[in-house]
Nucleic acid binder design. Structure first.
Length: 803
RNA sequence: GCGAGAGUGCUGGAAUGGUAGACAGGCACGUUUGAGGUGCGUGUGUCUUAUGGCGUGUGGGUUCGAGUCCCAUCUCUCGCACCA
């Protein structure tokens, strides 16, 4: 028979689905295992090989756990709200709901054609009214607990998307999605108080098994620092509070800098001698985009405030005050004390504006460059009561002094900002809030959820920054849930990250209409045992969903503090030449094309075999053929096996046990590439030494997670019991992984001279004797040299030290 | 600048401190075939007169033994970036 992958893959996909072979059972007595992949955004271009890599990897893991007898939940869904769909809809005059439906259909078909063992009865879609309802419900809970609030503030505005962005969505000053410049805009926005959870989001990383680089990136993003807030008096009476991580250098503070947006400026403006100059600078700073600010950061700019001086609280010296955009309004107190001797930025600024530079830590040449903190062993100078102390001791001493004199206190700061949660676009969850002229901001009643989008023809973004929902008066005008009077709905929608912040909970109980998921289901399935996803989501989705989950834990909705027990991450698949895959480069590989030519099993095998899972790796069309060849050889081998042996042959036994061990361990360690290499090696041995039915059976089981269709088919052809992909995972016997005789390396003085074949049970003395007897060792000992030391590594190597 | 990771054949990549290059791809030669493709087989780091030497970015070190550990250095990738 021919290996007709197309028809046999269709056959098995249908059988798996009709038989609900991979359905998860909530509450089953078996050990549960929840494997999760990041659900796709159903874009118009269809599934990408970039999806196939992580999905195949987790499918392999899910399939193995299932064969090991566990109750496996491996679900899939669609993260379907979002801009690309909306933009496509606008351009082609099709409603985003229709676009989404079509795209989901394409994705579902492609996912099924790859043979993933998803539980299709649990499929979810973030745009379903049943789903939106609970996303909105969580928002109401956040609002109720004062974690959602509306504030007027400068926000990131994407000039092309015409929409507000979260800090996490701005990359190098441009929009993460479209690459257009991002500008600052003063707007009233819904915010989520993620900063309240900053400390816990760091601390609880200790309790989970995330790969280290994910933990590090999250910690860096949250950016905790410990320092002190110090109050400086000014000659205009108002105090200025600054934040510093180096209170030990206070005696070196020779000037101060306020951010251009600092509130004190308004109060002082009339009294300033150079108010016009200051205002001009403020205006200039405000009009800069983030990108310009980044580009210009090499050259410091600023204006001194004429007519006011700061007073250094430790020595009473009057020092100048500047405004400069190198000080950020959104971090710390928006004001700093400048210590040019020991801070690079302050040093640059001081040099340009001729400020005094006072050394307070010995060890550098502060006329040439700032002497910044390398370690904390530097000695304090020019610092009165701190003189002679090390930096390490000076920090607590100064903190104590500040507290005692009530001019400062210890303070922890985070880089993390609150989450800008509103978007001025149509295709998102409406925020379930009503604005009432008498009652103010009023949350909708839970029983009125979901609040759905109005079904309209036109929903283009507006230039003035208003939501496209704003002009839809039929929808906007409503009654106040509190007083019943005329009121208006909130017209902003939620960002795409909303739906994905809790979707893993919905999979546990996807059809529940009383709660986001039932308590029992959540108790049973929580937490997600293994979650694999892209590094690009580390400071976005992964952080956001941990925040939501912690909140839900606090209000007693979910049973665990953390949503995910284990997090791993895959490398990107690059184009054939090593460039990023992109439409414009024309190097995009469509998984469906590969499946049509080589079959899903080949696709799955290749994407697993392609290289180190964590690293980026270029696609290779040739190497795909190698994997097809491998499966062809498996097929041919199976046809040649005609005996009915039930035990491994003596010739293959140790190899069988070794391979079972290797494949089992490699799958658990996400090393599918070497697992497949081990299967290829075993197949090569079969070609040489023959293969009986017992050996074939085990081989098919080991191959099954990677290439489930061909395994199930060949299993059936040999009349083995049941179905291969849900059969019991083969076991190995450690004692049988050894061969009777082994090849050992022979070294003389650490240099390889050859090998010997010797019984695995040989004593060290026998090994040394056999090694010494070899011609090459004898040769190396010419001239009456003697062996005076031997090192034997059992079954591996013998090293003779010869002099 | 800061943080993380990585440098191994022509290519993707293997290697608990113990025979570097597993397993694939590519290439070459042979073989099967009417031919192409497929299949099968052999070879494939490097210098060399070798039963010899050299080889995992570079330079040191630890060790009987280093791709692996330590120090220094260079290069690349990713993330963050005026966070006081």
């Amino acid at each position: 028979m021919k290996y007709d992958f197309t028809s046999l893959e269709n056959k098995w996909q249908k059988r798996w689905e009709d038989g609900k072979l991979y359905a998860a059972e909530t509450g089953a007595a078996k050990k549960k295992f929840y494997a999760l992949v990041e659900f796709p955004y159903p874009s118009g271009v269809g599934l990408h090989v970039g999806h196939a890599r992580p999905y195949t990897a987790m499918d392999v893991i899910a399939r193995k756990h299932r064969m090991e007898g566990e109750n496996v939940l491996f679900p899939i869904g669609y993260d379907a709200f979002g801009l690309p769909t909306e933009n496509f809809a606008i351009k082609n005059h099709i409603h985003p709901r229709i676009v989404t439906e079509n795209n989901v259909k394409t994705f579902r078909g492609q996912l099924k054609s790859l043979g993933y063992s998803f539980d299709w009865d649990r499929e979810i879609n973030t745009t379903d009214p049943d789903y939106v309802k609970w996303t909105q419900w969580i928002f109401l809970k956040l609002y109720e607990h004062d974690l959602a609030y509306k504030a007027k503030m400068p926000v990131n505005w994407c000039t092309s998307c015409k929409c507000v962005l979260a800090n996490e969505e701005v990359v190098e000053g441009v929009c993460e999605r479209c690459g257009s410049p991002v500008v600052r805009k003063e707007k009233s926005q819904w915010m989520l108080r993620i900063t309240k959870y900053a400390q816990r989001l760091i601390d609880d990383l200790d309790d989970v098994d995330f790969i280290e680089r994910v933990k590090i990136q999250q910690k860096n993003w949250i950016g905790r620092s410990t320092g002190a807030e110090v109050t400086f008096h000014s000659t205009l009476d108002d105090d200025i509070v600054v934040y510093t991580t180096r209170p030990d250098t206070l005696f070196g503070a020779t000037y101060m800098v306020l951010s251009p947006e600092h509130p004190l400026l308004d109060a002082w403006m009339e009294k300033l001698e150079n108010a016009d100059e200051v205002k001009a600078y403020q205006k200039m700073a405000a009009s800069k985009s983030d990108m310009e600010r980044t580009e210009l950061n090499k050259e410091k700019t600023g204006v001194q405030l004429r007519g006011v001086q700061g007073v250094n609280p430790v020595n009473g010296k009057q020092i100048p005050i500047f405004i400069s955009d190198y000080v950020l309004a959104t971090y710390g107190t928006g004001a700093i004390m400048a210590v040019p001797a020991h801070d690079t930025r302050d040093w640059e600024f001081a040099k340009k504006f001729g400020c005094e530079i006072t050394e307070v830590v010995r060890g550098g040449d502060v006329d040439k460059e700032a002497f910044t903190l390398k370690d904390d062993t530097g000695i304090m100078v020019n610092s009165d009561f701190l003189n002679g102390l090390t930096v390490k001791d000076a920090i607590p001493a100064m903190k104590q002094w500040l507290t005692a004199h009530k001019i400062g206190e210890e303070k922890v700061n985070f880089k993390l900002r609150d989450w800008v949660f509103s978007r001025q676009r149509y295709w998102g969850e409406p925020i379930p809030i009503v604005h009432c002229p008498t009652c103010g901001t009023v949350p909708m009643d839970e029983k009125d959820l979901p609040l759905l989008l109005p079904d309209v023809e036109s929903y283009e973004p507006t230039d003035d920054g208003e939501s496209p929902l704003a002009p839809m008066t039929d929808w906007v005008n409503c009654k106040c849930p509190k007083c019943g009077g005329d009121a208006k709905r909130e017209t902003d929608t939620m960002p795409q990250w909303a739906g994905s912040s809790w979707y893993f909970l919905r999979y546990m109980d996807p059809h529940n209409d009383k709660a986001l998921a039932g308590k029992e289901a959540m108790e049973y399935w929580s937490p997600v045992d293994w979650y694999n996803g892209g590094m690009e989501h580390t400071t976005l989705h992964l952080l956001y969903s941990r925040f939501w989950h912690k909140f839900l834990y606090d209000i007693g909705v979910v049973p665990t503090k953390e949503p995910y027990q284990k997090r791993t991450s895959h490398g990107m698949i690059l184009g054939e030449g090593g460039d990023k895959m992109s439409k414009s480069r024309g190097n995009v590989i469509n998984p469906t094309d590969i499946i049509n030519v080589y079959g899903a099993d080949t696709m799955r095998t290749y994407i697993t075999f392609i290289g180190d899972f964590e690293k980026a790796v270029p696609w290779s069309s040739n190497a795909v053929k190698g994997c097809k060849r491998f499966l062809d050889r498996v097929w041919n081998l199976s046809e040649s096996v005609t005996d009915h042996e039930t035990a491994y042959s003596a010739e293959n036994e140790s190899m069988m046990h070794k391979t079972v061990k290797k494949v089992s361990e490699d799958i658990d360690a996400l090393k599918g590439n070497t697992a497949i290499a081990a299967l290829m090696t075993l197949l090569n041995q079969f070609a040489e030494k023959g293969c009986n039915e017992a050996e074939l059976k085990t081989f098919l089981q080991l191959l099954s997670p990677f290439a489930p269709h061909i395994s199930d088919e060949l299993w059936e052809q040999h009349y083995f019991d049941g179905i291969c992909s849900i059969s019991a995972w083969p076991q190995y016997d450690e004692s049988k992984c050894r061969d009777a005789s082994v090849e050992m390396a022979v070294q003389v003085n650490g240099k390889l001279k050859g090998t010997i074949i010797i019984s695995a049970d040989a004593s060290d003395a026998e090994v040394v004797a056999a090694a010494t007897a070899t011609e090459k060792v004898q040769h190396a000992m010419d001239g009456g040299k003697q062996v005076f030391k031997t090192i034997v590594v059992k079954n591996k190597l013998v090293n003779l030290i010869v002099k």
